[in-house]
């Protein structure tokens, strides 16, 4: 049996290891941190976990429609391609820090890419 991407990266443990690093990068990234200004950091971190699990090809029930609805209020506030690029870049940098091999990082980026149009409501 071939291992899934999620297993290769390290499953839930990898998500947990990545979430602090990724969230810290996002909050420090002036291109996108305006979108993440919630007071409740635990709630925000939980959402980052959902994002990472999805991007790592892990178990989730998100549909394209969910992605559309989940980000519609951000599109109204000006969410565009440059912001998706920034998120994918921060995601890549996070995985590099965790010594994930480049070919797996590329697969993760491809999963995030696959919902770009949904996220941007196109």
């Amino acid at each position: 049996m071939t291992q899934s991407l999620y297993d290769k990266i390290g499953g839930e443990a990898a998500v947990n290891a990545a979430v602090d690093i990724f969230y810290r990068k996002v909050l420090a990234d002036d291109r996108i941190n305006g979108f993440f200004e919630g007071v409740d950091m635990e709630k925000q971190a939980a959402k980052q976990k959902a994002f990472l699990t999805f991007a790592f090809g892990g178990p989730n029930n998100y549909t394209g429609k969910d992605m559309r609805e989940g980000h519609a209020h951000l599109v109204e506030r000006g969410l565009n391609d440059s912001h998706v690029d920034a998120v994918i870049e921060d995601l890549g940098a996070t995985l590099k820090e965790l010594n994930v091999p480049d070919e797996l990082i590329a697969e993760v980026a491809a999963i995030a890419e696959s919902v770009r149009d949904d996220v941007l409501g196109r």
Partner: peptide
Amino acid sequence: VDVMKKKAFLAGASL
């Protein structure tokens, strides 16, 4: 508390 929590996290502390 809110501002410092965010800054402490950015300074490397785990949530």
